[in-house]
Design a protein around this nucleic acid. Structure first.
Lengths: 218, 218
DNA sequence: CGCGCGACTGCATAATCATGTGATACCTAG
DNA sequence: CTAGGTATCACATGATTATGCAGTCGCGCG
């Protein structure tokens, strides 16, 4: 069912557009479904071409890349959009991220890395140039709140250890993962979870997770 | 700056601590200034050892990595802290990022990449595993233009039927119960859930439930 | 009209999970 | 000292879940 990843390009520089197109078209597993020099028709473009991934230049005449991104996301939030830019300007990083960018690369990114990035974004990752990633992190509000929810005993009568393991379940850990992570036997994990079930009156991981999230036990 | 980047390690798993230590100690341009199994002395540790980069495990007994990070940043905001974790957790990414993490890597990251990451963080970058980077991006408040409050890109385009089944999963239903409830074959339930997993980028019921509850899909 | 897609069904195998029945060890309160 | 709670580990059996592969059927669209 996985055919080929459909890629759409927006890049106003003809040379760069050509080389990007060539790169995509020649890559196994990727198919180029279009390449445009501006975003004026972006909404209809994506509707018609049904891309999985869009490579979007930020600096373009007319509608810029961020606005283009916004329009794509407004209509098709599931399309993965990777922004391309020459410089690492803080302002635009913020705008792009808030508009829902799924990746952010410098144009000087080597071709091989670019192809890799398309794979990553399709797999649910967010390829970013490290320097940009740093900026993204710094955009976060430095929370003074102590969110270290390790010792909150307001919840059920779960022991600290049990609560700890419940948190891991909520994060989607399997028994095996918990055992590995906490460096204990999988049988011990079983044992703890068994008791958690008893105390929460549930009989499956999903019920426990659901209950935990709804009652703020995790 | 000195000739060598001073690296400090916090990792409670002895084996991993040993191999990390060996890796750092043996790397040109890096010098290992310490390795601890817990964060209890983190404030005095960093004051004494003056590291440039700290590799911080997230899951540690006692003071966890995020709290450790917070304490480091409180006193020495210039120290670069790279968080290490075994699996892709969802909840802690937010905590770590808000506490000022400068990088976020999976422990399975190959040694070469880890060394590269230390270089990146020293150079002002933020090395991140792509999947985690994506989570970070998704933490951002989406722009006002998003009228489709369904938000998440990786989650939203579930078909009506898929959404319906996801709701039942959240309620704690098993495959069998869903099949009975909706009067369809259990194989059909499997099929639907398989597709849900693909779209949500998860691989287990608990992950799906967790994601659904957190993103209001249910 | 054919094509793709969503809903649906079936089958098979491997991995995980749920549960029960023990057991050892530490710590703390009685 | 002893009972009770917590944390650890073991072994076993049956149920459930995860995945892959393979189809049918109806519907909207170019």
């Amino acid at each position: 069912m996985e055919t080929s990843t459909r890629v759409l390009i927006y890049e106003d520089n003809p040379d760069l557009q050509a080389s990007l197109s060539q790169l995509i078209a020649g890559a196994p597993g990727l198919s180029l479904v279009g390449a445009f020099g501006n975003c004026t028709q972006v909404t209809t473009d994506v509707a018609r071409l049904q891309p999985h991934v869009v490579l979007m230049d930020i600096d373009m005449p007319g509608i810029n890349g961020i606005e283009g991104l916004r329009r794509i996301k407004a209509g098709s939030p599931n399309i993965n959009v990777v922004m391309l830019t020459v410089f690492e300007e803080n302002e635009r990083v913020f705008g792009a991220v808030c508009a829902g960018a799924d990746g952010y690369l410098l144009k000087k990114t080597p071709p091989a890395r670019l192809l890799e990035a398309i794979g990553e974004v399709r797999a649910g990752g967010a390829p970013m140039t490290p320097a940009i990633a740093r900026q993204v992190l710094q955009l976060f509000p430095k929370a003074p709140t102590s969110s270290a929810a390790t010792a909150d005993d307001s919840a059920a009568n779960l022991s600290p250890r049990e609560r700890e393991i419940l948190r891991l379940l909520v994060e989607g850990y399997s028994y095996k993962m918990i055992a590995a992570d906490r460096d204990i036997s999988i049988d011990t994990v079983r044992s703890h979870i068994k008791k958690i079930y008893e105390k929460l009156h549930v009989r499956s991981m999903t019920e426990a997770v659901s209950k935990a999230l709804r009652q703020g036990l995790a």
